[in-house]
Amino acid sequence: MDAMNQANEDSELTKVLKVQNKMGIHARPAAMIVRISNKYNDVEVWVEKDDDQINGKSIMGLMMLAAGQGSELKFTATGSKANELLKELEELFARKFEEA
């Protein structure tokens, strides 16, 4: 087993993702994020922007952040598949939520 990548139960991973689509995290992108985060039952996700921290499985929380284009969100994931979850989110942000 590759000890470097195999996260165990307690490991906490963080990743900073930049909002690149023009309209920012409005309802549709927020729904896409929670669709991913809710797939991972055993992973806890928190999202930070400026002074706010919200649960990454809550769509209302994500929208409350009002993360416009160019803002940065810090995702913190804990759990056995935290790495995979963050990778999926990274790809989603890179795809600009399939928007302009």
Partner: peptide, 17 residues
Amino acid sequence: SAVEFNERLIATMAGDK
């Protein structure tokens, strides 16, 4: 409701820039 909320949110984010 959903559309109105989203429009408000988008307007807020656009104003922040």
